[in-house]
Design a binder for these strands. Structure first.
Lengths: 145, 145
DNA sequence: ACTTGACCTTCCAGCGGCTGGAAGGTTTAC
DNA sequence: GTAAACCTTCCAGCCGCTGGAAGGTCAAGT
């Protein structure tokens, strides 16, 4: 376990760009790390873990301040005390993700149909007509409410 | 067919806020509509159709300029001439949507497991330990690469 | 010892896509 | 005739980065 890592190394390890890590620090979402004599940021295992937590919270769709707060709580609370709040958030997020998936599935279906239409026969029947006048094209674009 | 509609009416019909419609117009993504003597914007059927197309292109994830360009092409080209480019975009978008869905499914799975963990028994085995020290919690947060 | 090139630092600016608020004119309903 | 609900413009700010400039540092090669 070699704890000493520069910003680009932790960036590579966590998949968060160095630039974004500095931004997170400036925003107070990450604590200021240790520095070398010459001012380079140096990170340890704990920082990696924290940054990964933060990144995942962001991927869950939390705003940066919310994500930072969650991480703070997560790292400060004991596991069981933290559970109810965390469970609530997870359940919420899960429902949201499910809705999102449903929406995307519908979109995907629409795209499949639209693609077939466009690449194959049906469009020929409307040859020479503008898309704005093609019932099919128009119909598809109106279904999105 | 009553073609005269104010901005809030077309907003309601298309699900795009009046504010956003004005923004689209200012950005050149929508043409300037007719005005009443007193300066109120008035919209017709064609504007509704165009705005719906634009909104859907945005929902597909295209940037506003790209979406506007697509709509412009769609309304200017005849259906068959437009097909190849459109088909390409649709296929691309479809692949992207599929990837997105897959990612969300994985996330959902992770959330289900995490939720069970947090709300039920296992966490008790780590009672009193910080989340940062709980192998399970930590493990889950590391899986997201 | 010197250079090269890849890193690191800070700072300020801008992006996309809205959204919010102020300050005022118009229309409609009672 | 007045109140509420519209409409107009304008400028400002939001979030989460991202880009670029200008300069310091470090490790390797010659």
């Amino acid at each position: 376990m070699q704890a000493q890592r520069t910003i680009s190394r932790i960036a590579h390890e966590t998949g968060v760009s160095a630039r974004t890590i500095r931004f997170y620090e400036a925003e107070g979402a990450l604590p200021a790390p240790a520095r070398t004599a010459s001012g380079y940021r140096i990170y340890g295992e704990a920082d990696v873990r924290r940054l990964r937590l933060l990144r995942n919270a962001r991927l869950l769709g939390l705003s940066l301040p919310d994500a930072a707060e969650l991480v703070r709580q997560a790292l400060a609370s004991d596991c069981s005390a933290f559970a109810p709040e965390l469970a609530r958030r997870i359940a919420e997020k899960r429902a949201e993700v499910r809705r999102h998936i449903t929406g995307l599935r519908e979109l995907h279906e629409e795209l499949v149909v639209l693609e077939q239409h466009v690449t194959h026969a049906e469009c020929a029947t409307t040859e020479g007509r503008r898309v704005s006048e093609c019932d099919y094209c128009a119909g598809v674009t109106e279904g999105g409410d």
